[in-house]
Design a protein around this nucleic acid. Sequence first.
DNA 1: GCTAAATGTTGAT
DNA 2: TCAACCTTTAGCT
Length: 266
Amino acid sequence: VPEGHTAHRIAREHTRRFGGSNLAVSSPQGRFTDAALRLDGARLDRVEAYGKHLFYRFSGDRIVHVHLGIFGKFTTADGAPPPPIGELRMRLVGPTSYADLRGPTACELITPDEAAAVIARLGPDPLRKDADPDRGWARLAKSRLEMGALMLDQRVVAGSGNIFRAEVLYRAGVSPFRVGRAVDHPTWLGIWTDFRLLMRAAFRSGRIITTEAADRERPKARTVPIDDAHYVYRRTGMPCRRCGSEIKTTVQAARNLFWCPTCQAV
DNA sequence: GCTAAATGTTGAT
DNA sequence: TCAACCTTTAGCT
């Protein structure tokens, strides 16, 4: 279940497993069958991630665009694939392993131009070397939207999701209800830098861990207990780890928001 | 066995 | 702002 780090981990793993190989492509569920038939047996060159989007670059300028959405999941394993079970949208089978995709928002065969158009709609991705935070700033600085909404806007930070928005604003001491126009440039750069730190850590460990306990144990982030991984996300009614105030929740930008009313007063 | 919820996006109102 | 869509699983009865 994915924010940007998940897409980047999948891109890396699938490139390692399948890059340069000819793959059997199928769609047992039937909703990707036409494209699967056209791709079956084709060589996959590599997989790239931009924000939460995945691009599977096959020979002949054919690209499979995958977006996991909120439910999507890849199951990847060594060996021969088992008989398909459930709603299996796409199955990739390489020489020594396979990947099963279920429940994605997007799984479509597109052209390089169409892929470029998807990427052009995205803001800077903290997990990409070439990311320019000022592209996000250009949008944020003139917006009347609240920060809690802007931190979910993929044109501001590509790859951010509901956990990162809550945790990054908490760590910055910024209220999710402050409007973008009321945020100064240094504050934005601080938020951006923290995004990059947290997302890189999540990329390495496979988990979003934002607490100081995690900072100390970052190399062993997997060992941090689930209940200690976040400052505010899904901690409604529990005491703030820094000030003891009760963590609040509401719905903002159609998602559950969590924040500390004391540490994030403005 | 049923219901609600979940790290998301799009397109219509 | 709201509903629709994608699928599995946790937490009930």
